[in-house]
């Protein structure tokens, strides 16, 4: 049974990883922004799946709700709004893709070759550790929540201002400015 579980987890990992990478490649490769956005969605969902696999259920939920639900809708909405004529055709981007990809591939290989992860060894810590706050055993969601409001209260508050600023920004930037537009 545990043999099955281990292999099932491996299977899930590789499927999700493939989903994440394929989605990312799609974002770069698709010319149509709608297709790119759908690829991005696939990638997001793959990441969410990996979060579940790592027993970070709360994060997985946030990932799905915020990214797949919020950000993606925003993207699609804007893509519809700006219409096709505004989308550049980018005929020669493949030419730029090849050298950039080769360069970064080399960097990647170097990093991996240099044993970048050599220090990360051994089995992961007990999953229960992630559900414990101040010695009390909770669920993952509760644990993260506790942590957020207790230890990370300050960043949490600052992030709430960030959201307020983003709201102001979206309104300020998105609203139609009366008067003459396009003064150079």
């Amino acid at each position: 049974m545990s043999w099955f579980l281990v292999h099932f987890a491996q299977l899930v990992f590789y499927v999700m990883a493939a989903c994440v990478i394929a989605g990312a490649v799609g974002v770069i490769a698709f010319k149509s922004p709608v297709h790119a956005a759908l690829s991005l969605l696939a990638s997001f969902l793959g990441v969410a799946g990996l979060f579940v696999l790592m027993e970070a259920e709360f994060l997985a939920a946030v990932q799905v709700l915020v990214y797949a639900g919020g950000v993606m809708v925003l993207f699609l909405f804007v893509i519809m709004l700006v219409k096709a004529r505004a989308i550049p055709r980018e005929p020669q981007y493949v030419n730029r893709l090849v050298p950039a990809a080769v360069g970064l591939g080399v960097v990647l290989a170097l990093l991996l070759g240099a044993g970048m992860w050599a220090s990360v060894t051994g089995a992961p810590a007990d999953a229960a550790a992630l559900q414990r706050v101040a010695g009390v055993q909770l669920g993952n969601t509760e644990a993260v929540g506790w942590s957020l409001y207790r230890d990370y209260l300050l960043p949490f508050e600052v992030v709430s201002i960030v959201l307020l600023v983003a709201m102001i920004g979206a309104i300020v930037l998105g609203r139609k400015e009366p008067g003459k537009e396009g003064r150079a």
């Binding site: 994060l59 942590s147 957020l148 959201l163 983003a166």
Partner: peptide, 16 residues
């Protein structure tokens, strides 16, 4: 995990 929550929130704000 907590940091990831912040990152997701800020990413959403950035996207907006």
């Amino acid at each position: 995990q907590v940091f990831a929550v912040f990152v997701i929130t800020i990413a959403a704000a950035e996207a907006a």
